[in-house]
């Protein structure tokens, strides 16, 4: 997470928890919205449901403020609370609508807001290989990599969020990355080091 300089979100959060300051909570809401919005859409294509779930999470946070303790890592707390609410809401929705319209439920690592970019034909060979490696992983493995590498969530918090042990979380990501890395090595060995130079020019 890129934090704006000088604002400690944990401190803002504590201000809400201790004093019920809704202005403080509005800062938290706006700051973390996209994190949750993005994470939710990797679980389901039902964008409306993701929006509703975020609302439910924050309504509950206000409702049960006095029972919520001060958290060490807000990122992890919000992500695990949101994930739980998302599956509750998904299950509720499943009961009320026809089976054909079921919101799908899986983790899609490479889903992108800009559909053209993720179009496989436009990806480089290496990028495509990495994507294929990741796609072959289980939903849970994909989610672990996503949370650790893309959202900087600690192993402990991932383990808590996904209801698995820290150890299996750790092993799982290392195994997965090893596969991805050795596939990448094979391709890069053939091409040599020129690739890196090209990347330097195209990246930024």
């Amino acid at each position: 997470m890129k934090e704006p300089k000088g604002i400690d979100q944990n401190e803002v959060w504590n201000n809400f928890i201790l004093n019920g300051d809704l202005y403080a909570l509005s800062n938290i809401y706006l700051h973390y919205y996209d994190l949750l919005f993005d994470y939710g859409q990797r679980h389901t294509s039902d964008k409306q449901l993701v929006e509703d779930t975020i609302q439910n999470v924050f309504i509950n946070i206000i409702k049960f403020r006095k029972s919520i303790s001060i958290v060490k890592n807000l990122n992890g707390y919000l992500i695990s609370t949101f994930r739980r609410q998302l599956f509750l809401d998904l299950n509720k929705k499943k009961k009320t609508i026809l089976t054909e319209q079921l919101p799908e439920e899986h983790f899609d690592y490479f889903k992108s807001p800009d559909q053209d970019v993720s179009d496989e034909e436009n990806l480089g060979r290496l990028h495509l290989t990495i994507k294929q490696c990741i796609d072959k992983l289980t939903d849970k493995q994909q989610e672990i990599i996503f949370l650790r590498f893309e959202r900087e969530i600690s192993y402990e918090e991932i383990a808590e969020t996904l209801n698995i042990s820290v150890d299996s979380c750790y092993k799982s990501i290392h195994r997965a990355i090893k596969t991805v890395r050795s596939e990448a090595e094979k391709i890069l060995e053939k091409r040599g080091n020129i690739f890196l130079c090209i990347w330097f020019r195209s990246a930024y």
Binding site: K111, S112, P113, I134, F149, L188
Partner: peptide, 12 residues
């Protein structure tokens, strides 16, 4: 390359 390959755009 691996890390860049793993990077995804965010929804917002």
């Amino acid at each position: 390359h691996v890390l860049r390959g793993l990077h995804v755009e965010r929804f917002h």
